[in-house]
């Protein structure tokens, strides 16, 4: 896949919890991010979305599977290939207070990636920081202040400036706006959309706020207990979710309109413990349409001709529209395991 910046194949990240217990935080995920695209990654707390986002930058050790980034296998490698990954891809974190060193000036924090990768001299770094701060909507005059003198929204702008310091091709943003008030959140989302348009940046946007994900994403992956259960172009996913979990998740989002009150009841139960995931389809204990086979047989992610992939025994893949359509779709970076027809 030449246009994929990152490609994960059957990726697993497991954590040993002692006494032989293992949390399978990411358990067999196939996912790729193409240049310039925004991939939304959604799911409830504990589904593994943050771990997956971090693993894609090798901020978590990969237990099994393969991760290719910028043309090199970086599953386990260190050295040059890992440095390339860390230079071409960066991260914006959820908590803007915690992600900046309180003792460093904003200038030092934003310039730090440049220093680590030995890019530019002092004057060039200075000019670069000023340009970055200006771009994210802050005055270069604030660069010598410490983080505690800024509001949450301003700090998140600084976090974005820092993530852009090395002019990356991909930014992994883990819940970048969920700690912010709604009026401030809108400004950050707008900034990210502008940057994407200007620089052809790709985003992996990890979030639980489905409305923001719908607005910003080209494609969306839905995770449940360490696996991707649905992956589709954003419009198709929000207009016609196919996996019963995705349907339940979308139905549970409160619509900000009192004239459109929810008619359906939320799904019963809670996310099972990742220490003891249910056998078969992990969603079956909460699924309104589960059948006997769902309790024993784990569904694989099957992609149809429109690029809409679902891991559910009860969802029939839509029939291909034409051969031409199929081949075009097959060349997309969208990847699920193709089941033989």
């Amino acid at each position: 896949m030449t246009d994929a910046l990152l490609e994960a194949t059957n990726l697993r990240v497991h954590f040993a919890m002692g006494r032989g217990r293992v949390v399978r935080a990411v358990d067999g995920v196939d996912l790729s991010v193409a240049a310039g695209e925004t991939l939304g990654l959604v799911g409830e707390s504990g589904c593994g979305k943050s771990t997956l986002g971090r693993a894609l930058l090798r901020l978590e050790d990969i237990t099994d599977g393969r991760l290719e980034a910028f043309g090199a296998d970086v599953t386990r490698s260190g050295g040059k290939d890992l440095r390339t990954l860390r230079r071409r891809a960066s991260m914006v974190f959820q908590d803007p207070y915690a992600s900046l060193d309180p003792r460093m000036s904003v200038r030092a924090s934003v310039a730090e990636p440049l220093a680590i990768h030995r890019i530019g001299d002092a004057a060039e770094r200075r000019a670069r920081v000023d340009a970055l701060l200006t771009r994210v909507g802050l005055s270069p005059a604030v660069a010598d202040r410490r983080p505690h003198t800024f509001s949450g929204g301003q700090l998140q702008r600084i976090g974005i400036a820092r993530a852009l310091a090395l002019d990356p091709a991909l930014v992994v943003a883990d819940e970048p706006v969920s700690a912010l008030d709604v009026s401030v959140q809108a400004g950050i989302v707008n900034l990210m959309m502008d940057l994407r348009a200007e620089r052809g940046l790709a985003f992996l946007f990890v979030a639980h706020d489905l409305k923001v994900v719908e607005l910003i994403s080209d494609r969306v992956a839905v995770m449940y207990l360490g696996r991707v259960v649905e992956l589709a172009p954003a419009r198709a996913l929000f207009a016609g979710p196919r996996h019963p979990y995705t349907q339940a998740l979308l139905a549970a989002v409160p619509v900000p309109d009192p004239r459109r009150r929810a008619a359906t009841a939320p799904p019963p139960g809670e996310l099972p413990s990742p220490l003891a995931p249910p056998p078969g389809c992990a969603f079956h204990p909460r699924c309104p349409t589960a059948e006997p086979r769902c309790r024993v047989e784990r569904p694989t992610l099957v992609v149809d001709a429109t690029g809409h992939a679902t891991a559910c025994h009860l969802v029939e893949p839509r029939s291909p529209l034409s051969d031409d359509r199929v081949s075009r779709v097959a060349s997309r970076p969208t990847k699920g395991k193709m089941r033989p027809a």
Partner: peptide, 26 residues
């Protein structure tokens, strides 16, 4: 009105699909 317009999905987005935001801070 500004608060409602800043909520994604509540009102039609502004030009170019952007969200409305309120300048400044509380």
């Amino acid at each position: 009105r500004g608060l409602l317009q800043a909520v994604p999905g509540a009102t039609p987005p502004g030009p170019d699909g952007r969200l409305w935001s309120i300048p400044g801070a509380v």
